[in-house]
């Protein structure tokens, strides 16, 4: 433990703080000789613009993404976007982020498992393009203080780590941490049901021994590997048709910035969002005639 709360209390920081009026001279912003545009979250707008250029055709012509109910995503203020997670290398995160950024002109901060940061090159690229480690402190700052859109996949790595035979069956929603994030930040949760990601890179088998050796959550063998070969297949997606449905935002009538929230309330809310997402996924699949053409 770095700092116990008791110490903070015992010394009452505010009690002895002198209230000094700040003079206008020091209010001027400090000289900040930055050379790059990498911000506190590790993103670079320059690199993101380049990535959008490259990803645009993939989004439009390859996955042919279609949105329903995009108007339910708030155009201002913080909101936590929650979606189902799929494909061996998840294709849903960039689709959601790119889609909302292009359609609504709002940046989306994608929360990802910390393990990302341990991968050389990939981890750095992910951060430069808009990925943030899923730490509650990060989420709070983004949602409450900076009023941003944050995307999180409550299934975590269990979503993309499942086999093709389990497609569109939602895994456990963690320990409901995403609901607590939204409650603490006082923002709504906007669930998004994604159809198409599962078929873009289906996992046929997994190699647990290799995963353990490499220290990664899973090592998949995908249908893409069989079709495109071991190298290209690791990166190339199948052109499955993407359909996304934004569900009604969920708000919580609880005071924000609390240290903890009732666990039963949190689990109830998490479960109700999971059920809603699952129902909508099944509903969308009932209407889908073709994996490739929707």
């Amino acid at each position: 433990m770095a700092a116990g709360d008791r110490f903070v209390e015992a010394t009452r920081p505010a009690a002895l703080v002198p209230l000094r009026p700040r003079d206008a001279e020091t209010e001027a912003p400090l000289h900040d000789p930055r050379l790059s545009d990498v911000d506190e979250w590790g993103r670079s707008e320059h690199m993101r613009a380049v990535a959008r250029q490259i990803y645009g055709p993939l989004y439009r012509q390859w996955f042919r993404v279609e949105w329903q109910g995009l108007e339910k995503v708030p155009t201002s203020g913080g909101a936590l976007l929650v979606a189902n997670h799929a494909a061996a290398i998840p294709s849903d995160a960039p689709v959601i982020m790119h889609g909302i950024e292009e359609e609504l002109g709002r940046p989306v901060y994608g929360l990802a498992d910390h393990i990302f940061k341990t991968f050389p090159v990939v981890g750095t690229l992910w951060a430069r393009l808009g990925g943030v480690a899923a730490h509650p402190e990060n989420a709070f700052r983004l949602l409450r203080e900076q009023r941003q859109l944050v995307l999180v996949f409550p299934e975590g790595t269990k979503g993309p780590g499942k086999l093709y035979q389990d497609r569109y069956r939602l895994r456990r929603f963690g320990r409901g941490g995403f609901v607590e994030m939204a409650m603490r930040a006082g923002v709504p949760i906007v669930p998004i049901a994604v159809v198409g990601a599962e078929e873009s890179m289906p996992t046929l088998a997994k190699v647990p021994a290799l995963a353990r050796a490499l220290g990664v959550p899973y090592v998949p063998i995908t249908a893409n590997h069989l079709v495109f070969g071991p190298v290209v297949g690791t990166l190339a997606y199948f052109p499955s048709k993407f359909k996304l449905r934004v569900l009604d935002p969920v708000t919580f009538q609880v005071p924000p910035e609390q240290e903890r929230y009732s666990k039963s309330r949190v689990m109830d809310e998490a479960e109700s969002i999971r059920v809603k997402l699952q129902d909508n996924l099944y509903d969308m699949l009932r209407d889908r005639r073709s994996v490739w053409f929707g």
Partner: peptide, 24 residues
Amino acid sequence: RHGVAGIFNVAGDGRLPWSEVASI
């Protein structure tokens, strides 16, 4: 001088990539 009590982080505003530190 002011008898300020408590725990405080002391650091300049902002963070910058190591590569940028090197180029500066």
